[in-house]
Nucleic acid binder design. Structure first.
Lengths: 200, 200
DNA sequence: GCCATAACCGGACCGTAGTCCGCTTTCATT
DNA sequence: AATGAAAGCGGACTACGGTCCGGTTATGGC
């Protein structure tokens, strides 16, 4: 929550003003508190502003939109997950064979997407590019693993084919409407990986 | 637009009142006209109500929400597409071998999803179950084709794996952000089908 | 320490989705 | 045709996301 926002202007980074930083932290903390206590859906921007002790305009200036604010909250937990992928223990982190890492990735992504599904939905449509950054990381990682495994074909599209069934709307459909068990969905995804990996 | 809504109550269908039917048609026609002339995003519920010559409350009573109204508009074109799948000429319709039908299905679904992406996005979240009906049809059809082909495995999950990359948010990401060509996406999907079909 | 300036703040304001309730219309029954 | 009541109607009302602009404050240069 204490990250400094740097705006590169003609190569000269400009430090965020101190009052702006203070307000940003206050807003993020207040938003997190409200989300924890009331649930994502029930949190209004007016409530966040009041809880943070700032004006509504300040919240919108810093985060652009409700989706943008939620995306920022998401980043907090996303960062930890990304760290686990980049430098955590195997099989999710480096050290295990790429196929094992891919399977661990799917398992982890599926459960974490389901856990944070409300926040992910609320954050979708954030045009600030933050939300896209999170997706971009997973796509890059899966492409890298597919490359390491030596899969033939259009790597970018195969990565999308593996990531698409892990998207929140699809998981919610399976779990809440079709009442599928998580274990079954996971087994299906691993089966999909097997089919994608075996070259013709 | 002249469909009669039947509410089965204890087995006794109740006919929709004539003024309700008239207003429903007026609202659907007005909404379609506004969408055609202004684009989906610019259409407000107030504008629809005024163009239809009814009160706002009437629109919300009949369609539940903006998403519900858009889902109904979608149903109009969806019906034609479903008819083509069920009884149209091969390879999309019956008569061709199931693998050919599946490939034709993907091609058709991909292009139609992209064409109607604005309406699909506006209709998503319609809890009226109408939107789910459209998804359910495609899932059932793909499961049927996979069964005909004789694929081994969890048919329901394999169908989801094939349908997920055709969802609008993913296609938009590929086309608008990553600037992929439609032809490339389509080729990737057909490659995915090949990998899924070949049993180990 | 003082000043100029650019960034920031805040709350009044707007547009739109969705709700509510008293009034009206339809229609089955007689 | 008269009637009772259920279904429908409509527009005023609320809640929330998002914008705007006059006033305020931090900051870097002197």
């Amino acid at each position: 929550m204490s990250e400094r926002e740097l705006l590169p202007i003609l190569g000269q980074p400009v430090r965020e003003r101190s009052d702006a930083a203070r307000n940003r932290d206050a807003v993020m903390c207040a938003a997190q508190r409200l989300v924890d206590s009331c649930g994502v859906e029930a949190v209004t921007m007016d409530a966040v502003a009041e809880a943070a002790g700032v004006g509504k305009g300040t919240v919108f200036r810093r985060f652009g939109s409700r989706a943008g604010l939620m995306a920022r909250l998401l980043d907090e937990s996303e960062a930890g997950w990304q760290a686990a992928v980049i430098s955590g223990p195997p099989p999710l982190g480096p050290g295990a064979p790429p196929r094992e890492r891919l399977l661990a990735f799917g398992r982890s992504r599926l459960t974490s997407n389901l856990e944070r599904s409300e926040l992910l939905i609320a954050a979708s449509g954030a045009d600030t590019g933050r939300s896209y950054a999170a997706y971009s990381f997973t796509a890059t990682h899966v492409r890298y693993l597919l490359g390491e495994i030596g899969v033939r074909g259009d790597i970018a599209l195969l990565a999308t084919a593996l990531l698409a069934p892990l998207e929140v709307p699809i998981l919610r459909q399976q779990v809440q409407v079709e009442h599928m068990q998580i274990e079954r969905i996971l087994a299906g995804w691993e089966d999909l990986v097997d089919r994608v990996l075996q070259a013709p």
